[in-house]
Amino acid sequence: MSVQETGEVLTGVDRSKMTVSDTDVAIDIVGMHKWYGDFHVLRDINLRVMRGERIVIAGPSGSGKSTLIRCVNRLEEHQKGQIIVNDVELTSDLKRVDEVRREVGMVFQHFNLFPHLSILENCTLAPIWVRGTPKAEAEATAMHFLERVKIPEQALKFPGQLSGGQQQRVAIARSLCMNPKIMLFDEPTSALDPEMIKEVLDVMVGLAEEGMTMICVTHEMGFARQVANRVIFMDQGQVIEQNEPEEFFSNPQHERTKLFLSQILH
């Protein structure tokens, strides 16, 4: 059974620069619970993410994996426990929430680019209005990152004129323009045509190689195996199992994990 058969083949992944800090905690989640009304959607989540870690969260739909990463930048509120991001604890204090969000980039399944703004404006909006960066500087940064995701020539187009893969790469560039310390990916390739998945994954690999702290909710098991340093498996709002990717795929412990892997890795 080969993992590569199910996911994209990512060639030349260089893990040498992907170093994990021993002391610097990026995200610390302690005893966290969340309910939607009466529905207990996240139960006793404990997760410490060190600076430089690349974590892949896998699990069946409805397992709470998206909700978990959306709690990290407080798109969702938690009701119990602690979430500390870059040494700032998330509470209902809006100032702290904005402080966290400035340092945490997020990439969505459906890109969520702003359709009324050009690609360049999409990338410069937050630096200009949140950080107060001068326009010329923000544009230079934006062009730098658009070149990184290999679409500088699209800068003056509107999102509606781009393919899905291009839009998702713009979304990544847009997040990077804020110079985030942490990147969250919420199923970034799930809405893409098969031919476009690789171009997005390549960009994500590049980020990992530069030492970015990343949490990715994804079904791309090839990516998980080659890039992640830790795979977390969730079901019914709980962390069922977590391990290094090699161990996770070759030697899953929990029955639920075995069942899940047997269904997605043929």
Binding site: L94, R102, F114, L125, A126, W129
Partner: peptide, 22 residues
């Protein structure tokens, strides 16, 4: 779509900025 509100929030735009700009 809700995603527009979420993307604006996730970038750290406050309420009035996300309303006026996005």
């Amino acid at each position: 779509p809700r995603g527009q509100y979420e993307a604006a929030s996730a970038m750290g735009l406050n309420y009035w900025k996300s309303m006026l700009l996005i």
